[in-house]
Amino acid sequence: MDRVVATCDEAVADIPNGAFIMIGGFGPPGIPVNLVQALRRRRLRDLVLIYCGGGTEEDGIGGLIADGAVRKLITSYPTHPGASAVRERYLREEIELEVLPQGTFVERIRAAGAGLGGFYTPTGVGTELAEGKEVRIIDGRAYLFELPLRADYALIKAYRADRWGNLTYRRTMRNFNPIMATAANIVIAEVDELVPVGGLSPEEIETPCIFVDRVVVVPREEIRRVARESR
């Protein structure tokens, strides 16, 4: 039951070319930056990333895209400041983009993790993002059918973990991480701190260990200080 691996490089060592990889995070919080950097060192090709933003040089996701490692990005908002790599590659037609409303993006992942075959959403009806999607009228309102979205790997970020892989989060680090943890074959968590099994209150565990395959501890001094002050 010990899920802890020693290094980020070891944690991502078996990811093959062409893998579908979810990456958590929204803004800087919740991006598993050290796992992403380790993935970048693998020099893989043809990856499909499932990530809400466009990536920046600092978070490493922009770097992966700049390196040409990414064939396709399934995303919601790849147009934020700093997302220059995806912009350049997209305008040169060197990367495929699938852009989803943010609620649809997360719900497709949730559906996959929950074993559902899809769902109907009112979001996007009558827009260009509805093209090719089934429309169904339910109680007089139009909905679009959306499929579940799974991945081979999920790289997620959490705050504290035990050796079994139970995870907690702090502040807005949650975002997509607890959802992505349910929807990939192999789930790899980068965490700030490791505590003994039993050291996390059962009530604060947001991602139970059943979802987690590997844990890597990468302490952040800054967070230790902030967490102490806000206690």
């Binding site: 983009l97 852009v99 989803l100 996007g124």
Partner: peptide, 16 residues
């Protein structure tokens, strides 16, 4: 035009 499309939460918020 030749721009990266990005929708974020706008469509969900507008319908919801």
């Amino acid at each position: 035009g030749p721009r990266v499309p990005g929708v974020g939460g706008a469509m969900d918020i507008a319908v919801g």
